[in-house]
Write a protein that binds this DNA or RNA. Structure first.
Length: 266
DNA sequence: GACCAGGCGTCTT
DNA sequence: AAGACGCATGGT
């Protein structure tokens, strides 16, 4: 399927795909490729238009994934009203926060705890190759919750995910049983959804907030870790401005990227 | 509130 | 070549 649609305010694919929010994107020549859910996508940007070739899913699915409706020109403009946020936005203007499939986002951020990106990528890759459905030659879908729930903790050993295997197992079982599902969380307030997510073994407030922001599109949620806390205390001692707060999670993505790759705060 | 739980990339010796 | 260190954390 070929799709072309506008992303309001544009996107820099590299900045977006390699900003630590998604772990399955690869740069192939001048295109970017990934498996999202059980579909393959190959895409590039042409002005503000995303040109994509996909193996499945609807136009609406992809527009939701890229948050096509959210106007990043307006967003950046309001962020830049805050002079402390301005350099962060200027550093990587093309970042968008994606809305990724629920179960794979949850697993990805369970895996990410006390971990580094190369290893996170490796574990996810093995997870897909071992337990995901084959799409073609060397493409595998992200495993379904059911597929993972059926495996014993020992069987998850091939992932070499260390102490996280038992967490992944509980997450898979709770999602496969239907007890935790996206629709239910969607209807809940952010606070209720966070509490529900935290009942999963191995999911604490940080991982829960990552799921809320990167999958459920709760743009106001700011996942806080020690680094982020430090950066916020240093750069934003009086907090974020009122106009930014509804999109604090997106602002956070700019701040994080800047403090990690841009000018250091200390 | 310390301390511990894989393993791997990266930096030091 | 080998050892140390740290990692978008959460449980005990």
């Amino acid at each position: 399927m070929n799709y072309e649609f506008e992303l309001k305010g544009g996107m820099d694919a590299g900045e977006t795909f390699f900003s630590g929010q998604a772990f399955r994107w690869k740069k192939c020549g001048d295109k970017y490729e990934a498996i999202v859910g059980s579909s393959k996508i190959s895409c590039f940007m042409q002005n503000n238009i995303l040109v994509a070739q996909t193996s499945g899913e609807s136009l609406e699915f992809w527009q939701h994934y890229f948050a096509a409706d959210l106007d990043y020109d307006a967003l950046r403009q309001s962020f830049c009203m805050d002079s402390r946020l301005k350099p962060c936005v200027e550093f990587a203007k093309g970042i968008r926060v994606l809305r990724q499939p629920f179960f794979e986002t949850m697993c990805s951020f369970i895996i990410s705890q006390n971990n580094n990106i190369p290893r996170i990528t490796g574990i996810i890759e093995r997870m897909c190759q071992t337990f995901g459905e084959k799409i073609d030659d060397n493409s595998y879908a992200f495993p379904t919750a059911q597929a993972l729930a059926d495996k014993s903790i020992e069987a998850l050993g091939v992932l070499r995910s260390g102490f996280r295997a038992k967490y992944l197992s509980d997450a898979a079982k709770r999602v496969a049983s239907g007890e935790i599902n996206q629709q239910l969380l969607q209807q809940m307030s952010t606070q209720e959804a966070r509490q529900k997510l935290c009942t999963i073994y191995g999911v604490g407030p940080k991982v829960a907030d990552c799921v809320l922001l990167y999958s459920l599109g709760r743009s106001e949620v700011i996942p806080m870790d020690v680094h982020m806390k430090r950066a916020m205390e240093q750069q934003f001692p009086t907090g974020l401005t009122q106009s930014v707060i509804p999109y604090g999670g997106i602002a956070q993505q700019y701040i994080f990227h800047y403090t990690r790759l841009g000018k250091k705060t200390d």
